[in-house]
Design a protein around this nucleic acid. Structure first.
Lengths: 249, 249
DNA sequence: CGCTGGCTTGATAAAGTTCAAACGGGGTGG
DNA sequence: CCACCCCGTTTGAACTTTATCAAGCCAGCG
């Protein structure tokens, strides 16, 4: 366990800098956090439902997701995380997680002990607010998913997820023009969208045939942003992105 | 706007007392909060999507819910709140709500200015943690709903909601043995469960015929707790209730 | 070159939706 | 006090979306 490495600190500082930015002291506080960096292979569990860890993590590289296991092998995916996300801030105050977390790609995570985070938050109310803000944005994303699961059809859900992931990824500079990596297999998409893999396949074909996206070899390209937004009834406000800078803005 | 009235303080203190309880200073801090109490009629909007309020609220009496409006009159319900809940802590750090909030029954709410809450949280880290905890429990409830919307059928979703609401209400002492008030109309249930009202009706009949519940005149009685839990695959851990005391425990 | 994991397609079934109509009960006005 | 009305509930029948089951395909890799 070493003090946050340069790159890690940079990611954390970028993530937590809101409109006002962070003071030097706050940035130093973040740089001083003890962190254990861990690399996991794709499909490997990071956190299992029920085991308390004593630290919370920041996703430094790769994608992860949270899921819940139900009887019969059903495995709803509750959240997808991209680099910079803080997926389990909740462990700070609810030590027993009600979900599991698994890597969707090879991933690198930084684990910071709860005690250190708590100290930091008490010393810097502004940082505490920034952490809150991150947690609340993830909750807002959850709400958007709920609304989709509840009241959108397969097409709308899939289109919405594409829009969301594109913008979230774009804000970390990991898109490539209108294209982005798409590590989720159709089976994962199905678990995230509340559909069957077969139906995801058909719905993807539907969006492809409509000229909205193309998806080949783990690469998703958005061919018609406006059309996709329309199909998704997508409004990016809930993501609370600092910069609305992306290829279509 | 007056200092928190006795009953309001009591509700807040009860809600925020975790395992360790609260110190006298912390309790006094809560009692000193300025609060504007407001009563709203059933079906009346409390918060409209997009309007910032500058204060966050505690539900003192009655039921409310949060929803999102989509095109075509679709109105997914994202959360149901019962007395004692703090439905919009998120407004502290994300001033523009991404949802609306409406009363399901005549309801009484206390509104506390953000500034006062922030001061309190900075002065008492223990209270800050308690507020966090509440917000995180509501997020856990959201996750449970998501899992249901994603991977449970109508019967499982409805049964799960009954279990959840019964326990949440029970923890506030508002159940009556195996029975509880059930102010949601079938139309509301449909919006909460991602179904049509017609199908909710049929699913209710299904649970009734199975001898699990009875529902008449806004009163829900649980006839077979074990059977209902089984139908719902219900595990109450995610609710993080202090006391597991209820009629069936 | 043959396996394996994931993708694609087809046929059939089930769960849930839609449309439509009737029912019921509590509250109001005549 | 009765009749009516309104809102929510209940039921029926036809229809759509999505699930299920099953087989074939394709590409990367040992």
């Amino acid at each position: 366990m070493v003090a946050v490495a340069n790159s890690t600190a940079a990611i954390l500082i970028q993530k937590l800098s809101g409109a006002g930015g962070l003071s030097d002291a706050e940035q130093d506080g973040l740089r001083g956090l003890p962190v254990a960096v861990r690399t996991v292979a794709a499909r490997q569990d990071i956190l299992r439902d029920g085991d308390a860890t004593g630290s919370c993590c920041i996703l430094l590289d790769g994608w992860t997701c949270c899921y819940q296991m139900l009887n019969g092998g059903r495995r709803p995916i509750l959240a997808i995380h991209v680099p910079g996300d803080l997926p389990d801030l909740q462990s700070l105050h609810l030590p027993e997680p009600d979900f599991g977390m698994v890597a969707l790609t090879p991933a690198t995570l930084g684990f910071v002990p709860h005690a250190a985070v708590r100290r930091l938050m008490e010393a810097f109310p502004n940082l505490a607010a920034a952490f809150w803000r991150e947690a609340l944005i993830l909750a807002a994303i959850q709400r958007a998913w709920m609304a989709g699961l509840s009241r959108r059809d397969a097409r709308g859900r899939l289109a919405h997820l594409c829009c969301e992931l594109y913008l979230r990824l774009s804000s970390t500079g990991r898109t490539d023009g209108p294209a982005m990596p798409m590590p989720l297999r159709q089976h994962d998409l199905a678990d995230a969208l509340g559909l069957t893999p077969v139906h995801v396949n058909r719905t993807l074909k539907d969006l492809r045939d409509a000229g909205l996206i193309s998806l080949h070899g783990r690469r998703l390209e958005i061919l018609d942003w406006l059309g996709l937004r329309l199909a998704a009834e997508f409004d990016d406000q809930y993501l609370h992105l600092n910069s609305a800078e992306h290829a279509f803005a």
